[in-house]
Design a protein around this nucleic acid. Structure first.
Lengths: 217, 217
DNA sequence: TGGATGTGATACGTTGACGTATCGCTACGA
DNA sequence: TCGTAGCGATACGTCAACGTATCACATCCA
């Protein structure tokens, strides 16, 4: 028998430590269903999402889905959570500017393709309708912005960027990428990240260069 | 009898010039239905939008809606179109910076409240699913950005803003406002427009001031 | 190998929304 | 004032998806 539904956290907690070696069929089902669910969310959106389409796409009986999730919302919720398990780029090596470029390039590339991109509108819509999903969405976004804000702070402190409000700058950088994806017919080209950084975070050295130039008669 | 459905443009074209004085009940019905439709789109979203809810909210018979629009999509489409008929702020008086501030403040205020704001997620979602709506959405966004881009160009040419790609700057300014609305739990505060402009479009005079300061020994 | 258990298929009752049709009622304007 | 035409209410058939139940079969692991 199955242990419990994904949402019954409090019930599963108690025997979580008694880790029985689980039937591999369970993990396999969950994985293939979650994957199909994300693809459906990307194509159909949150509103038109149906359990039956997911079952068909996953090549799985409808009953199997209901065995693992109590209802539609639980599945959608879980699917969005797995969506966010993405690999982060290297944030240690190089100057703040180099690290910033790497992180933004990663974001831009994620947004031009992949399941993630297709799900953005669905996630926004879902967050607007369901209280829990909204909380999760905003919370996650907040966490995702943190390293970026930190990076900008470091860059400003190190004198590499002109002085700005790091949070505002982070919003502007991400805003451009997402705004283009959602409001225009062409997403932001990852190869133009340098231009983006230059526009929003002009190098402090630019002023320095001007100062220098001004000293020459 | 009603002339024709909203979508049958080609059919209505021919007798459009024979302008009969229309029954005022028609205009009244259309108006109250479109208004209710927008409210529904804001609350329920594109996916969960139903004709019956609109009828109930508008205090109108379901049949009346079908008398004016052939189906759901036509109504949604028309509703989004009326959504965009908003008053533009004064774009003539004052310096580029002042005009820019006025336009962005208008955008930010529109986004913090009003039916428009509630419909953004629905519109994004709808644009993702329906080809015609997507075309309309992108086309409209493009038009809406034009005056902003023009304004920035003028400001740069006049030496009021530091040299930037006007299109990129416009994306950054609008991006911040929309990104905050869609990805965080608090929209952008219209009172912080000055900070926003300073961050994305630093005044050329700042460099000028630095240059000036550098000339002093 | 054999019992336990997850699985796919399928059928089922229920609900909610679509879009159509009908029918008196009422507001319009000639 | 009178016929026309839009209006609301309501009932209808259809369909798609929900979530449940059942059952033979396949897979696991003891």
């Amino acid at each position: 028998m199955l242990r419990a539904h994904a949402r019954d956290l409090s019930e599963t907690m108690r025997d979580a430590d008694i880790e029985k070696p689980a039937d591999p069929r369970i993990a396999r089902s969950r994985q293939v269903i979650l994957r199909a669910a994300l693809e459906e969310l990307g194509e159909a959106g949150y509103g038109a999402f149906t359990i039956e389409s997911v079952a068909a796409r996953a090549g799985v009986g409808k009953s199997t889905i209901y065995r693992h999730w109590p209802d539609k919302l639980a599945l959608v919720s879980d699917a969005f959570k797995t969506l966010h398990e993405v690999a982060a780029p290297d944030l240690v090596t190089g100057s703040p500017r180099e690290r910033l470029k790497r992180i933004l390039q990663h974001v831009a590339e994620t947004v031009v393709s992949s399941t993630f991109s297709a799900c953005i509108p669905a996630l926004i819509d879902a967050a607007e309708r369901d209280r829990d999903l909204r909380k999760f969405h905003h919370q996650f976004q907040r966490q995702a912005r943190k390293p970026l804000i930190r990076l900008i702070s470091d860059g400003v402190a190190a004198g590499e960027f002109a002085s700005v409000d790091p949070e505002l700058a982070a919003l502007a950088l991400l805003g451009v990428i997402f705004f283009r994806r959602l409001m225009t017919n062409a997403p932001f080209d990852p190869r133009r990240i340098d231009d983006l950084i230059d526009a929003v975070l002009p190098a402090a050295s630019r002023n320095a260069r001007l100062l220098l130039a001004a000293r020459q008669p």
